[in-house]
Nucleic acid binder design. Structure first.
Lengths: 120, 120
DNA sequence: TCCTTATTCAACCTTGAGGTTGAATACGAC
DNA sequence: GTCGTATTCAACCTCAAGGTTGAATAAGGA
């Protein structure tokens, strides 16, 4: 499924943008669960939940092994790590920049402190 | 805009599920930028980029101040923190559980190690 | 005042996401 | 083999997402 790294990230974020899927992920932190297990709390059809699981699987966030007719779903926590990786890299960059900026501003002879398209 | 915390998270994840918007976020870690600045690298229309910025803003990931006719966009890095917060909480939970499980398995008289809907 | 620049609003098109229902499939139990 | 259980496949519906173009708005500059 075209595991272009960028697309994988896109799918991972998209996967967690749905509250039901976030809920499923939360549920899976307690332990593996079958599709029917996962479906029971919701008012939606089993097929809908099956689709949700597929979305999570395509994003690499969960895996499914087969066990008789059941397909227990397992949370792949290292995929979550990849997401925090991306976010934290950028967050850090932004914050480093801000602190550098504050340093500079502190040394300034207090004129007008408007900063915008100043760079570029 | 109904700042229900769950919806906010949903919007934040949805926002970062688009590669163009992730790109914009990356660009903003370097410094604030106007909509036209942000649009220049892309082949899509200015209006499309304006929409992307709006999506990011509705998710709380960026803010826009007004400055003459310009609307410089600023990255709100603490919103990124909220996302990592959610992910890391669940990641941690899953990993703690796994390590507890390994402990238990280590103490076991090595029978079949199939684990599934065992809980519940 | 009139023009130019920067951005947004509005209407529209196309595609994909999330839901439904009704088969099809896969496997264990009898 | 046949039945029941667990899950997926397929076709379909509806609505929102991301894109387009063409006006409208806002504010500085001549």
């Amino acid at each position: 499924m075209t595991d272009h790294p960028d697309e994988r990230l896109s799918r991972a974020f998209a996967a967690l943008s749905d509250p039901v899927r976030r809920d499923i992920v939360a549920r899976l932190t307690i332990g593996d669960a079958t599709v029917s297990d996962l479906a029971s709390p919701y008012d939606i059809s089993l097929q809908a939940v099956s689709k949700h699981v597929k979305v999570l699987a395509d994003a690499g966030l969960v895996s499914q092994r087969k066990e008789a007719q059941r397909r227990p779903v397992h949370l792949e926590s290292q995929a979550l790590a990849a997401m925090t990786g991306w976010i934290e890299r950028h967050q850090q960059r932004a914050e480093q920049r801000m602190s550098r900026l504050e340093e500079v501003l502190a040394d300034l002879p207090s004129s007008d402190t408007t900063e915008s398209g100043a760079d570029r």
